[in-house]
């Protein structure tokens, strides 16, 4: 009963809110447009946009030591989450059956678990840093904490359901993931999509001014 609701109607409700919400928010960003720049551009913006997409994946020169913690723990979490989200066998199967109609080769089980190890360690570390660091704590809002906690719970329940023999555990994982999906478009979790827009915007704007940002 609970399982049927969670895997049936609630899944479609959550999916709709997620997709519509994300599309609306992205449209909102694009609709706000770019301020007209009357000065003649020194360079084409596209190259700068692509450049910044890559260069912003690392710290600015001179800041690497100070940001080493964020670099290591942050990438542990994000790369781990990316692998376990899109390349874990159960997830690929779910995407194939319920979303796209086609799947791809998943990573072997041990790689999936290793990715989960990294993701969990990274997430706990970056969140503790957020709470413990005096500046991080002061610039964090409820949204930041809520996003971390919901993500952690979704990952944790997924870990609980790893044995794949108990429907109740899978239902709990589905439920927490659906809560996360509903919350997603209303939160900073949107950075999963908007990071590319902001980076390339900055890069393009700076390239027109002749600066390598």
């Amino acid at each position: 009963m609970f399982l049927e609701f969670v895997e049936g109607p609630l899944w479609y409700i959550a999916l709709t809110i997620f997709v519509v919400g994300v599309v609306l928010r992205l449209l909102d960003v694009f609709r706000s447009g770019v301020r007209t720049d009357l000065a003649p551009p020194r360079r084409e913006g596209l190259g700068g946009a692509l450049r910044t997409l890559v260069t912003r994946s690392w710290t600015a020169p001179g800041f690497t030591r100070g940001a080493a913690f964020h670099l290591v723990a942050g990438y542990m979490f994000h790369l781990g989450l990316f692998v376990l989200l899109f390349f874990a066998a159960p997830h690929v199967l779910f995407i194939e059956e319920r979303l796209l109609g086609f799947g791809w080769t998943p990573v072997p089980y041990w790689a999936f678990i290793l990715a989960a190890n990294f993701a969990f360690a990274g997430l706990i570390l970056v969140w503790l840093r957020r709470v413990m660091h005096p500046v991080m704590r002061r610039i964090s809002t409820l949204d930041d904490h809520l996003a971390v906690i919901l993500t952690f719970i979704a990952m944790f329940t997924g870990c609980m359901a790893l044995f794949q023999h108990h429907d109740s555990l899978r239902a709990i994982h589905m439920l927490t993931v659906e809560v996360l999906m509903i919350y997603f478009p209303f939160s900073r979790l949107m950075h999963a999509f908007t990071f590319a827009i902001s980076r390339s915007y900055t890069g393009a704007a700076m390239a027109r001014k002749g600066i390598n940002a």
Binding site: Y109, W110, I113, L162, F163, Q164, H165
Partner: peptide, 10 residues
């Protein structure tokens, strides 16, 4: 085989 790191199934 059926669990983490090729660990055990039922």
């Amino acid at each position: 085989e059926g669990g983490a790191y090729g660990s055990r199934g039922k």
